[in-house]
Amino acid sequence: MRTVIFRTVAPYLTSLMVLFSIFVLLRGHNEPGGGFIGGLIAASAFAIYGIACGVAPVRRAIHFHPMAIAAFGLFLSGMAGVLSIFVSRSYMSGLWTSVHFFGNWIDLSTVLIFDIGVYLVVVGAITSIALALEERDRD
């Protein structure tokens, strides 16, 4: 699989796919998309990078161990639900607020935090599996 063309294109492809995955994550609340599908896109981006350039560069590029990323996502999702304790509502109640940002009102919510957590869980878990499989392939 390591042709010159593939190796040259893979980094651009990967960065585009990661960017797209973040776009999908953020549009997910009101339109098709969200953390899960975004995470899958990002994980396949890392998988492609791994196929093209080997597993070690991917591990270097994402810096943290994929399982640690997944764990952080789990923590984030769990904490997103806990915030509602401060307003005396049930676990996982959605809380909303708006911030003024460069002339636009942007809605922020605990739901978004939860979704980012899901994104990280999926990225971490699937990347971890994909990289492990790619490593086995070369042995």
């Binding site: 161990h65 640690a68 764990a71 952080f72 923590f75 769990g78 806990v82």
Partner: peptide, 19 residues
């Protein structure tokens, strides 16, 4: 919900500190 959330959160932290 506290027992479940507590276990999930601590489990996640432990997973991050696996090394």
């Amino acid at each position: 919900i506290a027992p479940v959330v507590w276990c999930l959160l601590v489990g996640a932290v432990l997973l991050m500190l696996r090394k």
